[in-house]
Write a protein that binds this DNA or RNA. Structure first.
Length: 679
DNA sequence: GAGCACTGC
């Protein structure tokens, strides 16, 4: 798609003027033949664009060890390729894995393919995602998250159960997909060397920019599939916009004025606050213009599920539907009936600084690929339009592709996984897009501090502790803390705390009910810090048996609490497999804090004489986040869960610790860093 | 005295 000449000629418009006119739907335009209940599945399958190419495709895929498959949206590649392979008897000696970046996609695709094969889900066709394994000994087509295949690879680096691995949505370049690229490439080579059954690797992507893929997989051929995307008219602004929110507002109401009310609008923005503010403004204005009623629907991930579902409901007749969304609507949520996309050209994304170890969330410009992805959301059922709130020149200056996540994240976890996979030289792992040497070194240094790796003669080795750490689906420091917990007889407590920390917050903070929230939370508040406070909440939650009413009264997110229980059960299982002795310290929460201090000493901060705090590893100034229960106090030493860089550098989720505990945990590391005036 | 794009094991 990103080949610019493939796109319709651009038009220019200027928010604030009535410069543009909307294209009327051209008669005779090819519309998709929609699948419906009366069309038999066999017929539906044959109507997919990919069906025409089936013989040539199979001919190619039979011969090739590697193939890159480019398929536009709606080509049917994800549901059909696995079936074609199976029906043609390719890879029958083992399983065909199809990986997806997201759980919902893996689950729903498996359901669809099982339906097409007229079998019960979990028999011939199944799926595996975290907490859910719907497969059996009969399963041949296995849909799974990429993270799940990566976990399996730790136990079986050659992926010997599989004869074909299909890496779908490869253009998204998640960390897991990027690591898998290297894992499958290595497995392929090793299996050849060891005379095992060969492994076929099919990389599927939606973008045409595949030189990198092809080059990486031994110059493998690229196969193109036509899709069913409808034409999209692209509009740019005449002049750069200094205020993209204002430009979005004007554009929304221009469309509202000119287009039939049944044409829905999707606006891409950067975050919750911005979306809620614009939603209010739109509702206000809509009341005072003569162009008919408007429903404005905010859409972002932290919205409760029931409110997220609102974006799928059609607006009442004669009423315009406007969805204001983060990039959740770029990939994760697909809304039908969108006729207009408004693209602010901005996105909030994470950046990582290996020197400070800081991840920063910042508003930045989208990439060209992202801009096309956004535009594509307007052409799913019929032709549509995309209004870019930037000039064509500005578009030309965007970076072509989004920087892969592996180049903007903390690599400690990735390095630990690679070593657990038996990669001999992790510092020089064959990444498709190499992270900077500084980032790699910083990741390995972090593991060395935790005692997960050792350096000998310039090489890095996994320690016994490191091997155990890798068996947990957790950040290394969490895994380490769990492994330390039997020494402090507080495994029950640590398992709960780590589970609480590894899901999105279990605390629900509606701004309108601030006083009520504070009052409700006071009951659980502990002067020992946020970890113990969370533990108190969890204990109370368990005591009432996960009662939903209790959750509502206490401003606790019951969905996330449920997740905490799942995570805890999974972690407990892993502990038992490692023959750990689990126990509880009861009310002796001092043990819990000692254990946390020992496991998370890298994230320690010290009170300075002037009342400020310094992080002990980087010596940068940090502050206690106002959401912490320790915000009012001035503890001499704390360990924190994460640093959040916003208006200042804030420590979030703090635990009160003694200087002695930190010294015990890492005598050499802290030898010259601590200045214990009191402990 | 603040405020969190999005996934995933």
């Amino acid at each position: 798609m990103p080949n610019d000449h493939d796109h319709p000629p651009a038009k220019k418009f200027k928010p604030g003027s009535v410069f543009f006119r909307l294209d009327k739907n051209k008669p005779g335009m090819l519309l998709p033949r929609k699948g419906n209940a009366t069309t038999p599945i066999e017929v539906q399958r044959k109507q997919l664009p990919i069906y025409q190419a089936k013989p040539q495709l199979l001919n190619q895929l039979r011969q090739l060890h590697n193939a890159i498959l480019i398929g536009e949206t709606g080509s049917g590649k994800t549901t059909q390729i696995p079936q074609y392979l199976y029906e043609a008897g390719i890879g029958r000696q083992g399983l065909i894995a199809i990986t997806q970046p997201r759980r919902v996609a893996a689950i729903s695709l498996a359901g669809r393919v099982a339906e097409e094969k007229r079998t019960q889900l979990g028999k011939l066709v199944g799926y595996t995602v975290r907490f859910e394994d719907v497969t059996s000994s009969e399963t041949k087509l296995k849909f799974m998250t990429d993270g799940m295949l990566l976990r399996e690879a730790i136990g079986d680096p050659l992926l010997l159960r599989y004869t074909v691995v299909v890496l779908d949505e490869a253009h998204e370049r998640t960390v897991h997909t990027d690591v898998l690229f290297g894992v499958v490439k290595t497995a392929q080579r090793r299996r050849r060397e060891l005379n095992k059954i060969p492994l076929k690797v099919i990389v599927m992507s939606a973008t045409m920019d595949v030189d990198l893929f092809s080059e990486y997989f031994n110059k493998s051929p690229v196969l193109y599939l036509e899709g069913r995307q409808h034409p999209i008219q692209i509009y740019y602004t005449k002049h750069p916009q200094s205020d993209y929110l204002q430009a979005a507002l004007v554009t929304i109401f221009q469309i509202h004025q000119e287009a039939p009310p049944s044409h829905d609008i999707l606006v891409f923005m950067t975050g919750q606050e911005e979306i809620e503010a614009l939603a209010r403004t739109c509702r206000d204005i809509a009341k005072h213009v003569p162009d008919g009623p408007m429903v404005v629907i905010p859409l972002y991930a932290s919205l409760p599920p029931a409110q997220q579902l609102r974006c799928f409901q059609p607006a009442p007749k004669g009423c315009r539907k406007v969805i204001l969304s983060t990039n959740i609507a770029e990939t994760s949520v697909t809304i039908s009936g969108i006729k207009f996309v408004i693209d602010t050209g901005m996105v909030k994304a994470k950046r990582f600084n290996p020197d400070s170890g800081l991840e920063v969330l910042a508003v930045q410009r989208v990439s060209k690929a992202q801009a096309w992805q956004r535009a594509g959301r307007a052409g799913r059922e019929e032709s549509g339009s995309c209004y870019r709130l930037y000039t064509e020149n500005e578009f030309d200056s965007l970076i072509p592709m989004t920087v892969p996540e592996i180049q903007r994240c903390n690599l400690a976890s990735v390095m630990l996984q690679l070593m657990a996979l038996g990669v001999p030289d992790v510092m020089n792992f064959d990444f498709m897009s190499k992270p900077s040497p500084e980032a790699v070194r910083s990741g390995v240094d972090h593991l060395e501090l935790l005692g997960a790796v050792e350096r000998k003669e310039g090489q890095v080795f996994l320690t016994t502790l490191g091997k155990k750490m890798a068996s947990f689906p957790l950040e290394p420091r969490y895994a380490k803390t769990i492994l330390l917990s039997p020494d402090y007889s507080c495994s029950d407590e640590i398992l709960s705390i780590v589970s609480l920390l590894s899901v999105d917050t279990v605390l629900y903070n509606p701004p309108a009910k601030r006083e009520e929230v504070l009052a409700a939370r006071k009951k659980f508040s502990s002067s020992e810090g946020d970890h113990i406070t969370l533990l108190n909440i969890y204990r109370a939650f368990k005591k009432v048996g996960g009662n939903k009413e209790w959750c509502r009264e206490n401003f606790v997110n019951s969905r996330n609490m449920g997740l905490v229980k799942d995570v805890q059960a999974q972690l407990r299982d892993i502990c038992l497999k490692l023959n750990m002795k689990l126990g509880s310290c009861g009310t002796e929460t001092g043990n819990v804090r000692r254990c946390i201090a020992h496991g998370m000493f890298v994230n320690a901060a010290e009170l300075q004489p002037d009342g400020s705090y310094l992080a002990l590893d980087t010596h940068q100034p940090v502050s206690i986040h106002p959401s912490s229960v320790l915000f009012q106090g001035k503890p001499a030493y704390v360990v924190f869960n994460e640093l959040l860089h916003t208006s200042r550098c804030y420590m979030r989720d703090l635990c009160l610790v003694d200087a002695d505990w930190l010294l015990e945990a890492a005598p050499e590391y802290f030898g010259r860093k601590l200045h214990p005036s009191k402990s």
